[in-house]
Design a protein around this nucleic acid. Structure first.
Length: 709
DNA sequence: GTTAGGG
DNA sequence: CCCTAAC
C-alpha cells in the first residue's frame, strides 16, 4: 500500500476512499496459500484464494471502517479482519454455497475527493448526483422454506435469505452468522464427501427447491422467475472525484462530471464479492488464474457495460428518468467476442451445475436449484463423475443476474427516495419481460430446437461451462439516452456506457431533482450515505415501498459476482485487477482530465510521467502514470490526425493544439538535451508561449520543480 | 519504481 | 489499456 497515497487521502478526509495501488509485482503475484491436503483441494484452495483477495482489499476496507461510522462499514471491516485471522472462517465465507449474497462485498471506494470548486460553481450539476451502482440480488421468497424476514430489509441483520442472514455477511450478526456457518460447513463437508450427494445436500442447505419452475422455465425458455435469485447490479452512490490538485486550474465541465461519475461508476463495478466456488469451479478458476484467459473475465464487466447501445429502455416514473439498457453479454461485438469466450464463465449471470440424474429420462431435463455457487454462480461439472450413461442432466442454478441498473440521483435525494427508485427500476426490469439465455462454453446457444445432447449438454459434457442468463426480451432503444448532453445524464456515461457499448442491460435511473442544492449535502454525510448504499445489503429495498418485487422476491444488495470470476473486490486500480490480471475497466479521459494532463505536461514536459500524473491526477487513483503517458501518446496522435478521423470523446481543438505545441516543444527539448546542452531553449520556449498564449509557460516550470509534488 | 515504446 | 525491455 502506498503510504503516500494514504497520506493524501487522510488529509483529504477520504480515507475510506483510499485505495492504494499495489505495485505491479504485487498485482501480478498469484501466490496462494499452500494447500497440500487432497481433501480440501478445491475448497481449500478457493478459500485460500479468497483469503488472498480479501487481504488485498483489506486495506481499503479497513480504511473505510476507520473513517466511516457506518455500521456496515465497520461490520465489513470486522469481517475482513476476522477472515484474515481465521482461515476457516474465510473458507466458510467463501465457500458458502448457500448464498451468493453472503459473499462479502467490499465496498467500493467510490467516493473520492470532492471538488469543492466544482460544487460551488456548479451546484446543480451532475456532480451532485449520487451515482449508485450496486448489485442486488433478488431472491424468491418462495424458495426458502425457512423464515425470511424480508419485511425488514432495511436492516441487513434482519434479512434472511435461504435461511442465511445477509447481515452476517457484514460480520455483525453473530448469531446469524453462526447459524450460517454451521450450515455452510455442513454443505461443504458434504460436497467434499460425496459428489453425488452434494446436490441434494446443497439443495437442502439452500432450501431452494424450485424444480418445477426451473424446469419449466428452462424448457420453455421463458422468463425466469423461479430461479433462486436474481442479481442486480449494485447501486452505488458515487461522488464525483476530482482530477487532482490542479483542479483549480482546470475548468471542470459537465464532461468532467460525467467522467468522474463514470469513473466511479466503474469503480463500483469492480467490486465483487467473494463467492463460493464449487470444486469444478475452483479448477477452472485455478486454470484461469494461471492463464491469460482471465483477462477476458474482466472484460466481461467491461463488456457488459459496453453493450448498452442496443437495448435501452427508458421510462419515466415519478419524475425520475429511468434508463434500462439491455445487457447482452453474449452479444459481444466482434472485437470483444474473444473475451467473452474466454471468460464466459464470469460473464454469465449464473450457471448451472449439472448433474446427471438417474431417472426420468425422456422427461427432459430435470433441474433443481441446488447449490448456488456464490452470487453469479457458475456451474460445476459435477455431472461428469456421475452416471455418465444417464441421459438426465441436473442443473444447479444459483441465481440470475438481471440487467445492470444504473441509478443516478441527486445527493439531496432521500435514501427512501432512492430506494424507491431502485425498487421501481427493479420492478420495471423484472416486469418488462425477460428471457433466458443459455451459454455453453462461452458461446450462446441460440438454437432452441436442439436437444441438450446435440448442444453438447450432458452429464458427460461440459456442464461446467454452461450458463444461463437473463436477457431482456426486447431491446427498445431510448433516444433520450443518446442525447448528447442530457441535463442530468453524464455524457460520459452516455457515451461510454451506452453509446459505445453493445447492448448491455443497464438501467439508468435519473432523478431530475438531482440538480437540487448540493450544498446541503456534506461530504461526510455523503460518504456515510454512500457507504450505506454500497454496503447495506438491504438498502436496495425500500422498506417503505410497499411493493416487493413481483413474485415475492426480495431485493438484496449483493456484490456482483461473476460466475467464475475471481471474486476479487476491487477498489481502486490495484484491486481492479488484482491477482487475476483482469483488464482494467476502460476509463476514457474526460475533457477536463485532458486539460489537466495537457497543463501538467506543458509544465513538466514529457518523460516525467510520474510527476505529471501526480500533478494532474493526484487523487485519481485509477489513473496511473502509465495511463497518463498513454493518454498523452494518444492525444498526440489524435491531434495529428484529421478531426474527422477522431473518435470517441471529442477533445477540444484548443487542447489538441496545446498538445501538439507541448509535444513539439518537449520533443525539441529532449532532442536538444540529447544533442547537447539546452541553451537556445529559452528562445524557443518563448515562442511557444507566445504562440499558445497561455499561462503555462514551459519555462515557467523547471523540470525539477514540477516533481516536487 | 519509472520510462519508453510496441501491441 | 497491457506488456516489457531497459534503466
Amino acid at each position: 500500500m502506498s503510504s503516500k497515497k494514504r497520506l493524501h487521502y487522510g488529509f483529504s478526509g477520504y480515507q475510506s476512499l483510499v485505495i492504494p495501488k499495489a505495485p505491479r509485482s504485487v498485482r501480478r503475484r498469484h501466490s496462494h496459500k499452500n494447500i497440500d491436503n487432497d481433501q480440501i483441494c478445491a475448497f481449500e484452495l478457493l478459500a485460500a484464494v479468497a483469503s488472498e483477495l480479501l487481504q488485498e482489499s483489506e486495506s481499503s476496507a479497513c480504511s473505510n471502517a476507520a473513517v466511516g461510522k457506518d455500521e456496515l462499514s465497520d461490520c465489513r471491516a470486522v469481517t475482513k479482519c476476522e477472515q484474515l485471522k481465521e482461515d476457516k472462517a474465510v473458507k466458510s465465507e467463501c465457500l458458502d454455497q448457500g448464498s451468493c449474497v453472503e459473499s462479502a462485498y467490499i465496498p467500493e471506494p467510490a467516493a473520492q475527493e470532492q471538488n469543492l470548486k466544482y460544487s460551488l460553481d456548479k451546484p446543480n450539476h451532475i456532480e451532485n448526483n449520487i451515482f449508485h451502482k450496486n448489485t442486488c440480488t433478488v431472491f424468491n421468497s418462495d424458495f426458502s422454506k425457512k423464515d425470511r424476514s424480508y419485511t425488514k430489509l432495511e436492516n441487513c441483520k434482519e434479512v434472511n435469505i435461504d435461511g442465511k442472514s445477509y447481515a452476517e455477511v457484514e460480520g455483525r450478526s453473530s448469531n446469524l452468522k453462526d447459524a450460517r456457518d454451521k450450515k455452510i460447513q455442513t454443505g461443504t463437508q458434504k460436497q467434499l464427501g460425496d459428489d453425488s450427494k452434494k446436490t441434494e445436500d446443497l439443495t437442502v442447505a439452500n432450501s431452494c427447491s424450485v424444480k418445477g419452475p426451473i424446469e419449466k422455465h428452462v424448457n420453455n425458455n421463458a422468463a425466469i422467475n423461479s430461479d433462486g435469485s436474481v442479481q442486480f447490479p449494485w447501486y452505488r452512490a458515487v461522488r464525483r472525484p476530482s482530477f487532482g490538485k490542479q483542479k483549480n486550474n482546470v475548468k471542470l465541465g459537465i464532461r468532467d462530471d460525467d467522467e468522474n461519475s463514470y469513473g466511479f461508476y466503474r469503480h463500483s463495478t469492480n467490486i465483487r464479492a467473494f463467492r463460493q466456488t464449487s470444486r469444478v469451479g475452483y479448477g477452472r478458476m485455478r486454470k484461469m488464474l494461471t492463464s491469460r484467459h482471465w483477462k477476458a473475465a474482466p472484460q466481461l464487466k467491461d463488456y457488459e457495460r459496453s453493450c448498452s447501445n442496443y437495448g435501452m429502455k427508458s421510462f419515466y416514473r415519478n419524475r425520475k428518468r429511468v434508463y434500462a439498457l439491455e445487457r447482452c453479454r453474449l452479444e459481444i461485438p466482434s472485437k470483444r467476442r474473444r473475451f467473452c469466450h474466454c471468460s464466459s464463465i464470469a460473464a454469465y449471470d449464473w450457471q448451472a451445475n449439472c448433474k446427471s440424474i438417474s431417472n426420468s429420462p425422456e422427461k427432459g431435463i430435470k433441474r433443481d436449484i441446488i447449490s448456488p455457487r456464490g452470487t453469479g454462480a457458475s456451474a460445476s461439472a459435477s455431472g461428469r463423475n456421475h452416471q455418465k450413461k444417464d441421459p438426465n442432466v441436473k442443473f444447479s442454478i444459483k441465481s440470475f443476474k438481471v440487467p445492470e441498473l444504473i441509478i443516478e440521483v441527486s445527493e439531496t435525494e432521500t435514501v427512501g427516495s432512492l430506494k424507491r427508485t431502485v425498487m421501481e427500476a427493479v420492478k420495471t426490469i423484472l416486469g418488462s419481460g425477460l428471457r433466458v439465455g443459455m451459454v455453453l462454453q462461452g458461446t450462446k446457444v441460440r438454437d432452441d430446437d436442439r436437444t441438450l445432447q446435440q448442444a453438447g449438454i450432458s452429464q458427460n459434457g461440459n456442464l461446467n461451462n454452461l450458463g444461463f442468463t437473463l436477457e431482456p426480451s426486447s431491446y427498445p432503444v431510448s433516444p433520450s439516452l443518446r442525447s448528447k448532453n442530457p441535463p442530468t445524464l453524464s455524457p460520459d456515461i452516455a457515451d461510454h456506457e451506452l453509446t459505445r457499448r453493445p447492448p448491455s442491460p443497464i438501467l439508468e435511473l435519473e432523478l431530475p431533482s438531482s440538480s437540487s442544492d448540493p450544498s446541503k449535502i456534506k461530504m461526510d454525510k455523503h460518504d456515510e450515505d454512500y457507504q450505506k448504499l454500497a454496503l447495506s445489503p438491504t438498502n436496495p429495498i425500500d422498506p417503505t415501498s410497499d411493493g416487493a418485487i413481483p413474485n415475492s422476491r426480495t431485493l438484496v444488495i449483493v456484490s456482483p459476482l461473476n460466475a467464475e470470476a475471481p471474486v476479487v473486490v476491487s477498489v481502486g486500480p490495484k484491486n481492479s485487477r488484482s491477482e487475476l490480471s483482469q483488464r482494467r475497466t476502460r476509463r476514457p479521459f474526460s475533457a477536463a482530465e485532458v486539460e489537466a494532463l495537457v497543463e501538467a505536461v506543458e509544465q513538466l514536459g514529457t518523460g516525467r510521467w510520474r510527476d505529471v500524473k501526480i500533478r494532474a491526477f493526484e487523487y485519481a487513483d485509477h489513473r496511473t502514470y502509465v495511463d497518463v503517458k498513454d493518454k498523452w501518446k494518444t492525444l498526440v496522435h489524435t491531434a495529428s490526425i484529421a478531426p474527422q478521423q477522431r473518435r470517441g470523446e471529442q477533445v477540444p481543438q484548443e487542447l489538441l493544439d496545446r498538445v501538439l505545441a507541448a509535444h513539439a516543444y518537449w520533443s525539441k527539448q529532449h532532442r536538444k538535451h540529447h544533442a547537447e546542452a539546452p541553451k537556445p531553449v529559452d528562445a524557443q520556449v518563448q515562442n511557444i508561449d507566445a504562440l499558445e498564449n497561455n499561462n503555462n509557460s514551459y519555462t515557467s516550470t523547471p523540470s525539477k520543480e514540477g516533481s516536487a509534488i
